[in-house]
Structure formats: structure tokens, C-alpha cells
Nucleic acid binder design. Sequence first.
DNA 1: ACAGGATGTCTAGCATTGCTAGGATGCCGT
DNA 2: ACGGCATCCTAGCAATGCTAGACATCCTGT
Lengths: 197, 197
Amino acid sequence: MSAISERRERERAHRHQMIITAARELAETEGWEAVTTRRLAERVEYSQPVLYSHFDGKDAIVSAVALDGFSELAAHLRRARQAAAEPGQALRAVCRAYLEFATERPALYQAMFILPTDLKFASAETPPPLRASFDEFVSCFRPDNKRRELFAEVLWSALHGIAVLSESGRIPPDGQEDRLDFLVTQIADAPMKPITP
Amino acid sequence: MSAISERRERERAHRHQMIITAARELAETEGWEAVTTRRLAERVEYSQPVLYSHFDGKDAIVSAVALDGFSELAAHLRRARQAAAEPGQALRAVCRAYLEFATERPALYQAMFILPTDLKFASAETPPPLRASFDEFVSCFRPDNKRRELFAEVLWSALHGIAVLSESGRIPPDGQEDRLDFLVTQIADAPMKPITP
DNA sequence: ACAGGATGTCTAGCATTGCTAGGATGCCGT
DNA sequence: ACGGCATCCTAGCAATGCTAGACATCCTGT
């Protein structure tokens, strides 16, 4: 418990974060397939085995990057929602922010939603940032809407689908704005079955 | 042009298909990470290099599997749509069939939508099965709906999101039926903005 | 002050991956 | 029967994730 061990602890934590940001930067500039343990070690100026004293393996590093990503996503969505003028515009603002996030940080988004991670979703030990991101969607619907969670799930799924299908070229890259418009209009809360009598 | 070279051509085509089905079976029983060129070669009872005389690389094999998958998906959706009693039920039937397909053949679905492939989507040289699958969604909406394609894109995106997020545990596995209900109800054609007066 | 143990780091290596070069083997047409 | 060609396999390469064991460094107890 001496001052020295405290310093070591600090250094260790610093290096821990270094690894995460190095992985993220490398992924964002050259894609995840370029993120190898060797290049990562070189970038942090340590040898490979130190990576394994911080993380259980490469997947764990990806998971750590993804977790950071969820914190940023939650903040990004929250900012968009609170900046919306009327509450009716919040839904559209949050959805647009989500698609922005996905297209501007494709590697980060991949880590969060496509690459295999150890993160636990939708359970008791779900990390707070994940929960916070989801709650931003839930908050776009009225509190008296008893099925807000369902709305949020489907909305999130649709946005994820749009993001990932357009990113991989499976859907034309333009027309995102139209899709957003359509989605928001159709899925806003209000009466459950507005069509059938 | 002798009979012998014809036989060789036949054998070659047969072997071509053998590789594809071997890859698919292996992926479906043990996952794509277990599909290596060595195991594939062993399974087909040839050496590795023959794979490369048929395909440009592993990605091309995955693409071939995916292409087969799109043919099956198109047929599956078409069957569901035509079996629907009333036209109003066609949309729901097709959506349910899509989710069925995704959950019952997860490896095939991965090849089609997640793994990197060489397939060209939404362009002139888009393979017919891809186009056919998409058209099944389009056909669920009325011909006088001028924005059918947009509807189909968003619908497909939402279904893909639901499929992939639940498969990877990012959304609770139960409640699929509720999501389906909600999605179909909200996105069916009919007046564009049923809520606002 | 100094040995002994614990902690941390690196070098070297393993098994596996996708992919390829080069040689051996057989089949065809003349 | 034999030259030429297509086909196929053995062997190997470079790169990957990961680990064992040696080396050094620092803390602790006498």
C-alpha cells in the first residue's frame, strides 16, 4: 500500500486505457482486420504478452472499445434529445443522431454491434452505458405508453438495420433521410392501431 | 469436345456444388469460424488447392453459399405470401417467414447479411435471387403505392435488425411475436400519415 | 544491508489460419 | 507410342492469436 504501489496502479490503469484507445484508433483508420495483437503491442510500445495481463484476449479488447462506444452513444443521443425544440421532435432527433453515430464511426459501431463481444445485454449485469443508450430511445415515447419498451426495441432494430445494410452496400446509400422520415412517422407513439377501426 | 471432356466438365460442376454444400453444412453445424480451407478440403476429399481452382478465395465460397441462401429465401417468402388467405395477411406472413428463416438457418443468414461477401447489391449486376427476395417485400404493398420500394427497404431493415439483435442476445429472445405484430401494424400501407389529421 | 521472494516484462515459440509455388501424375490427340 | 497439356498433391510461406519460460526489477523481513 505504499506510494510506489499506488503509482504502479496508476501506470497500469493508464496503460489499460492506452491499449483501448490504440485499438480504437487503429480500427477507425484501417479497419478491425488491421488490428492485430502485434501491431497493438507495437503501438503501445510494449510486448504482446502485456496485452494479456490486461485483457483475456482480443475479444475482450474489442468489448472494452465497444463499452466506451456505448458511453459515447448514450451521451450523443441524450444531447440530441434534449436539444430538440418540442417533445414531438425528440424522436426524430434521436433517430438522426443514431444514424449519424453509426456512419461517422463505423469501426466503433462494428465493435458495438457486429463483432463478437463478451458484453451482456438485456440482463441483470448489463453495463450501465448499454442500458442508458436503450433508455434514450424509451424516453422518446410518452410515459403513459405502456409499451414503450416494445416501441424502443423495434425502433432500435429498424435503425440498426438501416445503418448496417446501407453501410455494407446492401441498400442504396442515398435516401437515408427518406427512410428516417418514414420510420419516425410510422412508429411515433399515439394510438396503437391507427388504421384498423 | 469429346465425351470425356464433357464428363470432366460434369465432375467439375458436381465438385463445385460439393464445396458449397460442404461449407454450408459445416457452418450450420459448427459455425463459420469452424469452416477452414483445410477442413473443407478434407470434407470434399480433395486437397486445399482445388478449392482455389473453383473459387477466388474463402470469401468467394461464402458468397456462393450466400447466393444459394438468397434463392431459398426468395422461395420461402414467396410461398408464405401466396399461402396467405387475404392480401392483408400477406405482409404479416412474409415477415414471419423472414424471421423464421433467420432463426432456423443462422449460419446461412450470417453468410448472406453479416460476413463480408463479394455480392453486388442494389446495382445493375445484382444477382436475380437477391432482387427476387427484395421484390417479395415490395409485393406486399399495393401497386398504387408510389413509395413501395421505400416501404420495403425500411421493413427489411427492421426485420434484419430484429433478427440479428435477438440472435446475438442484444435484445431479449422472447417477444418476437409482439415485435412482429407491432411492426406489421405500423408499417402496413394505407394512408401515409394515419396519425396526424 | 542483503538475501529471498514476488512482481512484472520480454524473447522465443506453438498451433492454426488463408493462400501459393513447384513438381509429380495421368490423360489427350496425333 | 509419345510429346504436350491439364489436373492434382506435397510442401511451404507469412501472418494470426496466444503462451511458456527465462530474465530483470523491486519490495520485504531479518
